[in-house]
Simulated assay, not measured.
Amino acid sequence: MRTWLPLRWFLILQCVSTSQRNFRIVIDYVNTKIIDRDLVDNLGCQVSQINNRSYINCQMLLNRQLEKVSVRTELFFWKPNGQSMKLFDARLDACLLMGTFHKNRFLNMYSKNFKRFSNLECPLKANFNYTLERLYMDEQDFPSFVPSGTFRCQSEFFENETFVGTRVIVHGKVQPKL
């Protein structure tokens, strides 16, 4: 009897974690702003919708090498009834974000996407075209229930933790899967 209990819990958790999600995450648009033109020469992101999934493609070109990068990310969510909430506000070393596991589930999703790109590692090189292709948020990484609503994610990238180099704002929505 004792051996069956852990086995049952394992099977239940496996079924819950692999169940299909009844929602979609749609990225509407991405705004980028270069604040420090001496540091960043070019930054642009485009959104495409392919097979019911939103993909983000970004390009960045730096004017000089960047040894240390920190990022502050805020995520706001609005339910259809207008109720708003701040889901998180975190500031951390962006070099660590690109390569390690985090306790925060949202940061882990970002980290998972960045790990797919081998050219993203610190220090960031000058005059090198950094390209991120087909970034997406996998619904399977989210809990099985996520309410419908809209969201705004703002990320500011800092040089040496003091000077804002760029700002990226992502607008999107969570909607029921059809």
Score class of each variant (00 low, 15 high):
69 V>N: 11
174 V>K: 13
34 I>R: 08
124 L>H: 09
163 F>H: 11
3 T>E: 14
130 Y>M: 00
81 N>A: 05
11 L>H: 12
176 P>L: 09
69 V>I: 12
138 D>K: 14
162 T>P: 10
132 L>F: 03
154 Q>R: 11
103 K>P: 02
139 E>N: 10
61 L>P: 14
98 M>D: 03
155 S>I: 03
130 Y>V: 01
156 E>S: 06
159 E>P: 13
33 K>E: 00
133 E>Y: 05
61 L>N: 13
87 L>N: 01
71 V>L: 02
27 I>Y: 03
25 I>P: 12
24 R>L: 04
38 D>S: 03
76 F>M: 11
156 E>A: 05
116 R>Q: 13
35 I>C: 08
151 F>G: 05
157 F>D: 00
129 N>H: 07
30 V>L: 05
92 L>G: 08
48 S>D: 08
80 P>A: 03
56 I>Q: 02
6 P>F: 01
73 T>N: 10
66 L>N: 11
117 F>H: 09
165 G>W: 04
138 D>C: 06
52 N>E: 11
121 E>L: 12
164 V>Y: 09
135 L>G: 05
50 I>D: 10
5 L>W: 10
84 S>Y: 06
28 D>M: 02
52 N>T: 15
171 H>S: 12
59 Q>E: 07
29 Y>D: 01
79 K>C: 11
96 L>S: 14
4 W>R: 15
34 I>Q: 02
144 S>N: 00
48 S>K: 15
88 F>R: 15
108 N>S: 09
39 L>S: 11
19 S>F: 04
124 L>E: 05
5 L>N: 07
117 F>M: 08
102 H>V: 02
171 H>D: 04
123 P>V: 06
59 Q>A: 09
19 S>H: 02
169 I>N: 01
155 S>T: 11
101 F>M: 15
144 S>M: 03
44 G>P: 14
63 N>T: 05
116 R>L: 11
